[in-house]
């Protein structure tokens, strides 16, 4: 009994009335509005903000965060969290780069991190699902293990001399950088899949109410493992995009990456309590962060104040969302 079309599963987006539909995508509209407003205001101050290079940089620069946030959104929607994703991406990027410089076929250097991501996170999911350990505990532990382990093994030696045809993030298709393609296509696929597939609804059901989902015949444990495995695959893709952005890989854990990914998911409207949210929101949030970072430089905001402005903007987005929800009630 794996399918989730049983009647007791809480109904999701397809059956909603128009008003509720706007509610379901409200956060996406707010984010889209914020991005547009930012572009308008900043380009008014400095028209170069709208230069093709800058726009392409804003969309491509945080694409790996958006991709990682897709997996993170699934995890959070299913009622869990993963604070180890930054460390995992660091480890997977290092594996990928090491394979690439040691003469393995390029496709293997792209594929292995995705597979390792799946295996590692399936293990994490199994610990959470079958041994009933809270996800924050397992992933807090994994964060230490992966971070310490990576430095023990590599001593932080940089990986240089990467072959040119390995640098997938620097490829362009129709003039658009490949990370943007990855971000857009994966987001669209997952958004569609989450809404219309049985398993997509299963994820919402588990996050919404575990016991109800269980009663409805959903194999909660198995589904949790699958969700984490999918999350691992996205971390793998994100790691490859991350590793191939430049011609050198630092082989350490990127600082605070997990916070950025989680923030993108929750600002994107994924409820930390599980059960609601879409991956479109998290991708928009990742783009918004890149746009904010870029616009602060364009607006000459003193870098000393940069972080407070970022924090304030996150807070405002969240408060606006709360106000909207209250209004709908």
């Amino acid at each position: 009994m794996m399918t989730a079309s049983s009647p007791a599963v809480p109904r999701t987006a397809p059956a909603m009335r128009p008003m509720k539909r706007i509610a379901a995508y409200g956060q996406e509209f707010i984010l889209l509005g914020a991005i547009v407003a930012l572009f308008v205001v900043v380009s008014f101050v400095n028209p170069r903000f709208l230069g093709a290079n800058n726009i392409s940089n804003i969309f491509a620069g945080n694409a790996y965060i958006a991709v990682a946030a897709i997996g993170m959104s699934l995890v959070i929607i299913s009622g869990h969290i993963d604070v180890a994703v930054g460390s995992l991406i660091g480890v997977l990027a290092t594996i990928s780069g090491t394979l690439a410089v040691n003469g393995y076929p390029i496709w293997l250097a792209w594929l292995v991190p995705v597979l390792v991501g799946i295996v590692v996170n399936a293990g994490v999911g199994a610990l959470i699902a079958y041994l009933r350990i809270p996800s924050i505990v397992v992933t807090l532990g994994m964060l230490s293990i992966l971070k310490g382990g990576l430095i023990s093994v590599t001593a932080g030696a940089w990986i240089t001399n990467l072959p040119a045809d390995y640098l997938i993030a620097q490829f362009r298709l129709f003039g658009i950088p490949s990370p943007v393609w990855f971000m857009v296509i994966l987001t669209a696929l997952v958004a569609f899949w989450m809404r219309y597939s049985g398993f997509g609804r299963t994820i919402y059901a588990i996050g919404g109410n575990v016991e109800a989902a269980r009663v409805a015949g959903i194999q909660v444990e198995r589904s949790t493992v699958i969700v984490f495995a999918i999350h691992g695959a996205f971390a793998g893709i994100a790691a490859v995009l991350f590793a191939t952005q430049l011609q050198v890989i630092q082989s350490t854990v990127p600082p605070n990456l997990e916070l950025t990914v989680i923030t993108a998911s929750v600002v994107g409207g994924v409820s930390i309590l599980g059960g609601t949210g879409t991956v479109i929101g998290s991708t928009l949030a990742a783009i918004l962060f890149a746009a904010i970072a870029s616009s602060l430089i364009f607006l000459n905001v003193s870098a000393y104040w940069l972080r407070s402005v970022q924090g304030l903007l996150i807070l405002i987005t969240v408060l606006a969302d709360m106000a909207r929800r209250r209004r709908l009630r």
Binding site: N46, G51, N57, G61, L246, V248, P254, A293, F298
Partner: peptide
């Protein structure tokens, strides 16, 4: 920071901003 990707993004933004 001591961050590769962030350094790259910041430098790119500088290039775009000042032309």
């Amino acid at each position: 920071q001591e961050d590769n990707v962030l350094s790259f993004n910041q430098a790119t933004t500088l290039i775009n901003k000042h032309g």
